[in-house]
Amino acid sequence: MALFRTAEIIKASKLPPEGVKLSRMIDAVYFLPIAYLGVFATFHMHFDLLAGDWDFWIDWKDRQFWVTVTPIVEVMYPGAIMYYFWTFYRQPFGATLSITGLLVGKWITVVLAWYWWANFPVNFVMPATMVSSALILDCTLLLTRSWMLTAIFGVWAFAMMFYPTQYALFGYSKQPMVVDGQLLSLADYMGFTYVRTGTPEYIRIIEVGSLRTFGGHTVWISAFFSAFVSMLVYTIWWQIGHFVGQAFFWVKGKRGVMSRKNDIMIVGTDEFAARHGTPDGVAPKLTSARTLAEGKS
């Protein structure tokens, strides 16, 4: 017995063998150079503009803003990308693709810009990772097959798991030390000891919020707040994915009237074949893109 349903799926696609082969080539060309690089480049820029400093510097990784801002910003692109991959292909890797793509961009920046060009040690500019949260989000969508349940449960876990995941990477930097009679965390000292001309100390946005209750458990209050906002943001970005992910084509009818067809996937299907008189379900042979646009309806 086969591990996957691949054979059944290929059969149901009604593509001839050469079509199947071609589709795999399209997979390779479309996925890596276009989808992956496109997502990593744009998401990286988007993230750096909205939450960059909290991610660049170890002395920005506080209990309030870092924990609040990062998941909210990091859930945006996954919302739209998940819509696209799930709605059109039922592929549950939109979040992981976005977040790993973001990390590829981050690490290129860390190595080339921060370490090689600006000479900061890598640990000082180590980025956070939300791959764990992305896996939770993707698995939730696959298992529930509902974007609303994913927004409620998956995104909640996406944000809540942020701090515990990062603690393994950055816990060491919270160790106390005394310099000139002042108590500092190691992260504070690293921010002080590595001179940053363009980013003076006062630019840090840390520990200035009002999310302080329940006996000082600031992290979890911030994480809860971040989770709720992330849910809302996710649904908005899912709808943005819906808005920009629309595809349609124009068909010229018998009377010469152009009409918009939203279901581009109908081309080559049984329904299309029945409507256009091609009983084997294969799309009519087209001579040019213009022929498709002017096809019968």
Binding site: A12, S23, R24, F88, Q91, P92, F93, T100, M265
Partner: peptide, 21 residues
């Protein structure tokens, strides 16, 4: 993360699934 994506990459990813869907 890459293993998760790879799990779906080893099978037809886009065109075939879109036609089936």
């Amino acid at each position: 993360g890459f293993a998760w994506i790879g799990w779906f990459m080893i099978r037809p990813m886009f065109l075939i699934r879109a036609r089936v869907l």
